[in-house]
Design a binder for these strands. Structure first.
Lengths: 138, 138
DNA sequence: TTATTAATTTGTAACGATTACAAAGTTATA
DNA sequence: TATAACTTTGTAATCGTTACAAATTAATAA
């Protein structure tokens, strides 16, 4: 079992008290929590914690690829400590975000279940386009 | 060529001046524009247009499945009049959103190009989870 | 037509997630 | 121990979006 501290070190993030607490929380709560959920849940055990720290820390984790930032929810960014490839399904009624295995090949196949009623599928990627990539390299 | 007005009628949206203008704009500008871009571009030719109308109208279009709302950009919602299945790629430097053909099968294959530098892939879907679906049906 | 009702648009104000920023605190290094 | 670098914190500002009620326009009934 990989500890939060080790996970941070591997991703070149210096482990502070706050960073370890936030990473630990993410590793123990695979519920794709929002900043606010993380902040509110950690506050009782870490009363000096600042909301800004949670924002900063998750931004840092994200930049170092120690966590995944999900834009599935247009209201808030959600965070996922599991960085192995998998898909997500969000219920727009209860807001719950589910993990979806990516072992199927076709997207159509992937979502044809009797349980979930899929109303929208988005396959999105972010990175650098050819022009910006060239500019970056010069 | 399908007109904006016809596209609205097909999707059971009553065609008003504003609605036609916004749909026309989306059909002619496949650049996945934000609300603000649409508003600013239409203002010169429609000086009485309100930003709220653009929000309301796109929300309505989206609900009627006349357009697709993309959450690829965490800063703003982007809109796409093309509702046939395709993927998107956003450059996080210039903000440009590209269409990606969905003819390839594997997600890995899909993004292994020499041109685009892919740093993040998200396969997201939204709908109703089993519990909420059951609740909805009762 | 005219009156009445429903639908649509508009502008302002409020909301809420996120970011900017500078001060305070902590850790590393000379 | 002193200095510099890093991290955390709290407040204020920003900005996309939403709430809401008034004004306008369109549809329908009398």
């Amino acid at each position: 079992m990989e500890t939060a501290k080790k996970h941070l070190t591997i991703h070149h993030v210096r482990p502070s008290m706050q960073r370890i607490a936030i990473m630990k929380y993410l590793m123990e709560h695979c519920t794709h929590p929002t900043v606010d959920t993380i902040y509110n849940d950690l506050l009782p055990v870490m009363p000096t914690l600042s909301r800004t720290t949670v924002y900063n820390t998750l931004e840092l984790f994200s930049a170092k690829h120690a966590v995944q930032a999900l834009t599935i929810d247009k209201r808030n960014v959600r965070y996922d400590a599991c960085t192995t490839p998998h898909a997500h399904f969000m219920c727009h009624k209860c807001g719950h975000v589910f993990d979806v295995e990516l072992d199927a090949i076709s997207i159509e196949l992937l979502y044809n279940t009797d349980e979930f009623l899929v109303e929208k599928v988005e396959l999105n990627s972010v990175g650098l386009c050819p022009d910006c990539r060239e500019e970056e390299e010069n």
